[in-house]
């Protein structure tokens, strides 16, 4: 049995009296690749934002390695967990390299300058993500796919063992989407990093992650191995829609094919 990384118990969270998380409980295992799927408005983003304390839920507990999240300083948390937010059109007034250097913030102390360690982490992150050629480019000149790759590089440079991603490949073209998942698989397998990825793409969740959690109406409806999700009408119940599955020609997993509309 693998060690538990996040132990989430009875988590509730509301926005303006609207309940987004409803007494949610979930364990996230160390070194797993977990995909969180579910209908829009189910609370996926809210849940991951609670994990890095962007939101501080008033009800329920989150333990990270058995320590309550609120007992860990923000900097200490950032040393362990990196976060890749949803792609936004925000202005990032830095070059890719400066952006990655900023990700070293949790390791810097106020009176020392950038160390050899920091530089090494940044170089490694560029190497792993094959983005060396982008390092001097300004963030605002990058394409959506390139920018997302730099965000993943920054998450690596930050140095934690856990990477949380919110819709890492939505809005990307098929090539960039594939590249992103390839890198995530690589990081997961070679570096033994825990990956938690919120996604709408059920096929990528089935193909690339070890575990899937379905979040609906602020509760966990399903948690299990990713190939189990196509069985027992689980998806049908979740999305209130009929699904057609086929076996992937190169692996044993069932995946979804789009419905034909007559």
């Amino acid at each position: 049995m693998n060690e538990i990384l996040f132990d989430i118990k009875n988590l509730s969270f509301s926005f303006d009296k609207k309940k987004v998380l409803n007494s949610l409980s979930l364990n996230i295992t160390k070194a797993d690749f977990l995909s969180i799927i579910g209908p829009n408005g189910g609370g996926k983003t809210t849940l991951v934002k609670c994990l890095i304390r962007i939101y501080k839920p008033p009800i329920g507990t989150i333990l990270l390695n058995n320590i309550p999240l609120e007992k860990i300083s923000q900097k200490e948390l950032a040393k362990q967990i990196s976060y890749v937010p949803q792609i936004s059109e925000n202005n990032f007034p830095f070059t890719a390299k400066e952006f990655l250097m900023l990700a070293r913030y949790p390791h810097l102390s106020r009176f020392t300058s950038i160390s050899a360690n920091d530089k090494k982490a940044v170089t490694e992150a560029f190497d792993i993500t094959n983005t060396n050629h982008l390092s001097d480019r300004h963030m605002n000149t990058l394409s959506g796919g390139e920018k997302q790759m730099i965000f993943i590089a920054a998450a690596l440079a930050q140095g934690g063992d856990v990477i949380i991603l919110d819709e890492p490949a939505t809005f990307l073209d098929p090539k960039h989407e594939h590249d992103i998942y390839k890198i995530l698989r690589k990081i997961h397998l070679q570096k033994k990093k825990t990956i938690v990825s919120v996604t709408h793409n059920i096929n990528s969740a089935i193909l690339y992650s070890d575990k899937i959690a379905i979040l609906k109406n602020g509760e966990i409806d399903f948690y299990g191995n990713s190939d189990q999700v196509t069985k027992d009408g689980i998806l049908e119940k979740t999305y209130d829609k009929k699904f057609t599955f086929i076996k992937h020609p190169s692996c044993n997993k069932s995946i979804i094919v789009p419905e034909v509309i007559q």
Binding site: I54, Q74, N90, L102, Q158
Partner: peptide, 11 residues
């Protein structure tokens, strides 16, 4: 870079 990113970087 935005508040969410700042928090996730440890601010």
């Amino acid at each position: 870079l935005g508040e969410d990113i700042a928090i996730s970087r440890g601010v």
